[in-house]
Design a protein around this nucleic acid. Structure first.
Lengths: 335, 335
DNA sequence: CTGAAAGCGCTTACAG
DNA sequence: CTGAAAGCGCTTACAG
């Protein structure tokens, strides 16, 4: 509702029109504080009729709150799976919305956190969720020093950080175990970057599966050197020379390149070699043959993370580490 | 900088410490209004030293501004290319940031605009960019009625809407022309949804190319019926019966399904039939053979859109329709 | 149950 | 060139 001068009506206008005080109107809206049932109804009715909408900014100022949550997305070109972040973001937004919070989105290149700093310093948000962190993470250090509420989706080695993640270690252990049980003993593990905690978790899970199965892991089949970055091709050559049963990829970006390399060499999947990925993304969605992989519910991750951040903002106790379940999805590529 | 009680220091603290008025401090910071050079420097120095940061919320309230822009992303599962929106979003965020604006992100399912309504009604943003619109668009109607500044990325038939788009019509005309010049006369056009303006533009460009080339278009080769939605497969069968030179797909999601269908039928691309898409996305990025398509710079679209919205918010004149260039990228699939 | 008043942290005419 | 004061639109002790 607008007044003649083009401004929206305020709580003061409502109060005037009804011959009550602003306090009363405020109480009727918020439901806080004692107020007569009848007065409240009168106010509510008037508000409804005249389409009054509270100004969230003013409310925020008075309460020293913003009702905004900052989510920091990664922004490099190297990101494996945008879609995952996308879905996670949806989960966050969806649950934030249900309690009247909005999402202030920003990006973070490597360790340039200027944008995050500006948003936090300017008091534009009540809390933040970091969608990706590094082993050495400027975002975490900044937020901890500022003392602002935040959670991390994914895992980190930093202390006292609320983190929500899928159980990658256990997931990778399970997938590897299944492969071993299928009598695929010689598994080559290909991955590009050890700079993330998740990569380490995956590797640990991989090793655990071998140990549990009582099988010996051939360290010669581990291709984790970051120098392989552009040379997956070369790695594939070496792998093929070493007589492997299966190629396990750290993620789909890697898997995609491995598959391409195999195709070029006319190596058939799964006949000549099996392939599986520790990660499922849309990259391989339409791949023929379909690729065995782990499946994670990104949206649920977002939902849980957001809920926890909201609790944190409200001053509630929140457990430091939450692990979400996963699924192993067996497809043609490991038949 | 924090005070003992945990609150951040305010303009009043600075004023007190320096023995000047809040007015003066405010002026020193904003650069507005007359102020002595020396006093300004004193203030600035103190601020720097004590790491004072203005409270954007308070500033916003005083100025009736928020320094936030709302970006509305589509949220259906049917969206063709998330990546495009992603990159566009990056462009928007990037340019907003340079002038101290932040992005409030929300999603819009089909025509459920409740989330957008809440954000606008609560005065949480100064303007909005709609990333996708429908022929009948609740978002546009709502924003127009509210009289709030907004721009649209993409095209719409609504009047008086600032829109920034790639020149799809001309792009599709050019790609089609090139195919015709390669003597690929019998081109089947496959698309799923006519509910968007862009689909119409593409179709127009397609027809124009035929007209310009003086070739007759076989209407039997147009597969645009939404009923094909799940039946691309069937369409491909019919296409193959009709002796076509090339299959032109409205977008990559369609192209991807068409290619899959061809593969299953052992039809070779480009030997047996050529394939091209009116759109380039990551879906087909690693496809073998590589697919001829149009290429659009999503990030630039975001940048331009944001700049125009900012102008609009500042009350500047802005041209209603802006068309951005494109590229035709010829690849193996039409060799 | 209700209200006057102070306050959230800024900006901005207005006066000097 | 500088400042006192009012105002942005809410909330919230405090008093009645």
């Amino acid at each position: 509702m607008e007044k003649e001068d083009g401004r929206d009506i305020t709580i003061a206008d409502v109060a005037d029109a009804l011959g009550v005080s602003k306090t009363t109107v405020s109480r009727a809206i918020s439901g806080k504080g004692r107020i007569g049932k009848e007065t409240r109804e009168r106010v509510l009715e008037y508000i409804e009729e005249h389409d009054y909408k509270p100004n969230a900014i003013a409310k925020g100022l008075a309460q020293s709150k913003t009702y905004n949550l900052c989510v920091v997305m990664p922004r490099d070109y190297e990101v494996v799976d945008w879609n995952f972040f996308q879905r996670c973001l949806f989960g966050i937004q969806e649950t934030a919305e249900t309690v009247g919070y909005d999402i202030l989105l920003t990006m973070c290149r490597m360790n340039d956190i200027s944008s995050l700093e500006r948003i936090v310093d300017n008091h534009k948000v009540d809390g933040v969720v970091l969608m990706r962190t590094f082993l050495e993470d400027a975002q975490i250090e900044f937020l901890q020093q500022k003392g602002i509420s935040f959670v991390v989706t994914g895992s980190t080695n930093y202390e006292n950080v609320i983190q929500i993640d899928h159980n990658h270690r256990s997931a990778c252990r399970e997938l590897t175990s299944i492969l071993l049980m299928k009598n695929l003993k010689r598994i080559a593990l290909v991955g590009e970057d050890e700079g993330y905690v998740v990569t380490q978790s995956r590797l640990i899970g991989f090793r655990e599966a071998y140990r549990q199965a009582g099988e010996k892991l051939d360290e010669e089949l581990l291709f984790l050197n970051p120098e392989n970055r552009v040379r997956i091709d070369k790695a594939v050559n070496e792998i093929l020379e070493r007589d492997v049963d299966c190629i396990l990829c750290m993620d789909d970006a890697v898997a995609s390149r491995v598959l391409k390399a195999l195709r070029q060499r006319h190596v058939k999947v799964p006949q000549d070699v099996r392939v599986a990925s520790f990660y499922d993304s849309t990259i391989l969605e339409n791949h023929v043959p379909s690729i065995t992989s782990l499946s994670f519910d990104a949206k649920e991750l977002g939902r849980v993370a957001c809920r926890m951040l909201l609790d944190l903002v409200e001053g509630l106790e929140v457990s430091e580490k939450t692990l979400l379940p996963y699924e192993v999805v067996l497809k043609e590529s490991t038949k």
